[in-house]
Amino acid sequence: MKHEMRLFLTICFFILSLQAWPQQNTTMLGFGTGVSRNMILDEFHSPMFYRGTGYMLQLGLNKQNDRNYDQLAIIYQKSKISPDIRNNSAAHLYRGSFDWIRTYRVKSEAEKWMIYLGFHILTSYDVSSHTEWPNNSYSHCLAFNLGPSLVLDYSPWTTDIHFYWELSIPVLNYIIRPSLGAIIPEGSIRRARPDIWGVVSGGELTSLHEYQRIRSNLYISFRDSPRFNIRAGYQWDFQNYTVNNHYQSAYHLLYLAVYYRLKT
């Protein structure tokens, strides 16, 4: 019951946070694409790192004014990954994420700098499907993260060119991973609930001692016209989960996106 209560409170917090979305005076909707370099160590399948290159698609909603910086991003990645050993092992890796960063401007006298502090809710689902092994070929990591975020906005020369850096470090997490010998989460087995709700509620609420994550997003935004911005960016993400089957993942994204100004 304690477990369900924690999950319930986490969901309530998520819903309440969504309702706090502000009415801002600049809204931008963007679409981007790029290449990703992925690396995964998933001991559910192997003690070896699997690495590979793939593509990514991104849909973003950005709101910014003198008081707030909000970023909503949906990212999809697909890669084929393999270990650095001499066998035919390989896996298809699919990553989906739904990330929201909400930050508030910190007062500063510097004209070219804007510093924002706030929090994030990251939701990511990584699925790998081994191409050679017929049983238990799937593995996954579903993560819901809450924690602080820092956003720096720097425009050194002109207001048309901005450098941004978003940094998010989750501190409270809900993680759903396979159990030691089956894709069913351990919590689901303990409560003999193999159904969907059993799987969803069968994860683990963790903090920094068991799960660590850092996400850094660095991009340059160029105002091409009154309506359009072009972004070129680099995102780096690292996760480390140490319960049962050790899971470690990192990716690098290089992307280009076009943002359309919806209203001012």
Binding site: P47, P83, I85, N87
Partner: peptide, 11 residues
């Protein structure tokens, strides 16, 4: 249910 894994030497 059989579960697969591998070793650093590829076995």
């Amino acid at each position: 249910t059989p579960h697969f894994s591998e070793l650093p030497n590829g076995w």
